[in-house]
Every structure is written in C-alpha cells, then in structure tokens.
Amino acid sequence: MTDLKKNLTKRPKPFFSGRREHLTPEAAKRASSFEETILQHSWYRPTLLKALVVAFGLLIILPQRASGQFGIDTAAIIAALQKMQSLMSTYMAAPLKTINQSEQSIASYEQKVMYPLTAINQAKSAVMQFESQFTNLNNMFHVNVSSATLPQSQSFETTLLSRNANNVPAISSQYQSVYGVVMAQNTASPQVRTMTDMTDTQAQDAMKRALQIDNLAESELTEATQMGQQIKQAAPGSAPIIEAEADVWVVRANAYTQEALAELMRTRGVDLANQSGIAKLATSDSTNHNGVVTGTLTNR
C-alpha cells in the first residue's frame, strides 16, 4: 500500500472554500483516486479537524473573566474598608458628635441669652431714632446767627462763623479793620499801649481758637453721623470695635474741650489783668495829679 503522507501528487482541499481548483485530466484522475482512498480509510479526519479549529477560534473570541485591582481579592478589600469604617466610627465619630453637641449648645446660648434677636432689633430701632434726633440737632447747630450790618463787621463775622480753620490767618487783618490798631507811640502812655496790645492779642487768639474748635466740632459731628450709620448696619460681633472707635473720639473731644477751656481762662485772665492795669493807671494818674496840685499850691 502506498503511504499517503509521502505521496507527493496529493493536493489538499481548501478548508474555508468549497471551490475546486482547475486540474488537468491526469491530475483530476489522481485526485479522484486519492479522495476515494481517503474516504475508504479515514473519512472522519476532515470533520474532526474542522471541529477542533472552530472550537479553538471560539475560545479565542469569547471574553474571559478579568480580575480587578491588579489581581487583589475584592473580598479582602471590602473587609479592610469595613474595618476602617468601624475604627472611624469608634474613635472619630463619637468625639466629633460630642464636639458638635457642644458647639450647638454654645450657639444656642449666644442666640438666646447673649445676642437675642429681639434685643438686637430693638437696639437697631433705637439707633435709627437717635440718628433722626441727631440730624435735627445738627440742623439746629447750623442755624444762621449772623447779626452784623456794616460791610467790615459783616466780613469779619462771616470769617468767625465759617467753621473753617483755614480762615485763621485772615482774622488779624479783619480784626484791625474793625477794632483798629494800637495807638501811636506819642499819643498814649507806654502802659496804655502795652495793655491795649495785649488785649487785642488775646482777643484775636480767642477768636482764632474759637474758629478751630468750631472746625473740630464739625468734624466730630460728621464722624458721629458715620458711626451711627455703621451701627445701624453692624453685626453684633462688630459692635465692640465701633464702640472702641467711639471711645477714642470721646477722648479727643475731651481734649478739644480742655483746650477751649484753657483759651477761655486765658481770655478771662487778660480781662482781669486789664482791670487791674486800669486801676493801677488810675492810681498813678491820681498820684500825679495830686503832686501837680500840691506843687501849685506850694509855689503860691
């Protein structure tokens, strides 16, 4: 029997196509004889081969089960997460719950006792009423009180009531235009000229200081109005800050008041000094007159 595996004239049958190749009559005769021999001896081999190939292809095509997390077991991960959750619930959740309860108690105490909403609204309403009253007082503070009728005195009065400290340098010239200058040297005694100069000086100083204090009072009223507006819109926690700023302005106002009082005392001191000087001059004049009278009577 001829070995089929060593037969060089055989031609394999195409696997995926039923189309036969065009063969010569002699080759076709040999192929027909070969196929008959195959069918007689191994009819089952092509069918088995096809089944194996199809099965192998299905194994390649069908999806395989994959393991996530780089092959780590999911059950182990879930167990670790559960353990972590248990530890957090034991050692973190309980203290955080206690802290939360404490904060809620403090917040409730502040809202109901320290900063009750009703009291805050009442305070805001009172501030608005006070601001309305302060506005009326401010309008009264700016009422026109000018009374001079002559041109020079009207100009001087306007400067004194301007509430503008920048007008201080103009007071001296306007004062001299209204009250005049110190007498000439040969028209009065040196004592009278000195007293007159000191009186004019103190009068001008007091007027200048009064103008400065008016300007300061205007600034304080403006600042007080701004603070009132801030207090109406301020939160309860910011009230101490505004209160501290108001205390600073109170200290400044006291300083300005002390300065005005000192100027008033200087003016009063000059007035008393003038009265004392007048008495001294009168005494000196009386002494001189007595001497003149005595001398006249003696010469007779």
Score class of each variant (00 low, 15 high):
A246C: 07
Y175K: 00
I171E: 01
L261S: 15
F156V: 04
A75L: 09
A206S: 11
Q275I: 02
T298F: 09
A126Y: 08
E110I: 15
T158A: 12
T296M: 05
T196G: 00
F16R: 11
L58K: 05
G68A: 15
A246F: 04
A210C: 05
A239D: 08
R45Q: 09
S146E: 01
S108M: 07
G68P: 14
E103Y: 15
R11Q: 12
M88R: 09
H142A: 02
S173R: 07
N299H: 03
L272R: 05
M227K: 08
T9I: 09
S33D: 11
F70A: 01
N138V: 07
S132M: 04
P116N: 04
V181S: 15
T158R: 12
V53G: 08
V251W: 04
D214E: 06
Q258I: 05
S189H: 02
I38E: 10
N144V: 00
N166V: 04
N138Y: 01
L49Y: 13
N7P: 06
F130A: 15
I242E: 03
K83E: 11
T294A: 11
I213S: 00
T98F: 08
N167R: 03
V251K: 15
I278V: 09
I99D: 07
I60G: 02
K280H: 11
T24N: 06
F16D: 14
H289P: 10
Q152G: 03
L150R: 13
L58G: 00
Q229H: 10
T118P: 00
G180D: 02
Q226A: 15
D247K: 14
V251M: 06
P169C: 07
A262V: 05
G18W: 05
T225K: 10
P46V: 08
R45E: 08
V251D: 12
R252S: 12
Q154Y: 07
Q212I: 06
E223H: 04
S155H: 00
M84H: 13
I72W: 07
Q101M: 13
M114W: 13
S146Y: 06
Q275C: 00
N290Y: 07
P240W: 01
L4Y: 02
R30D: 02
V292G: 04
S102W: 14
I77Q: 06
Y115M: 06
A279S: 08
E263I: 03
L81Q: 09
F156K: 01
L160A: 03
Y115I: 14
L281K: 01
F34N: 07
T47C: 07
A234V: 12
T158E: 07
T199K: 03
N186C: 02
G180Q: 02
A188M: 03
D247V: 11
T194R: 07
K112T: 15
T283D: 14
A66L: 05
R20Y: 14
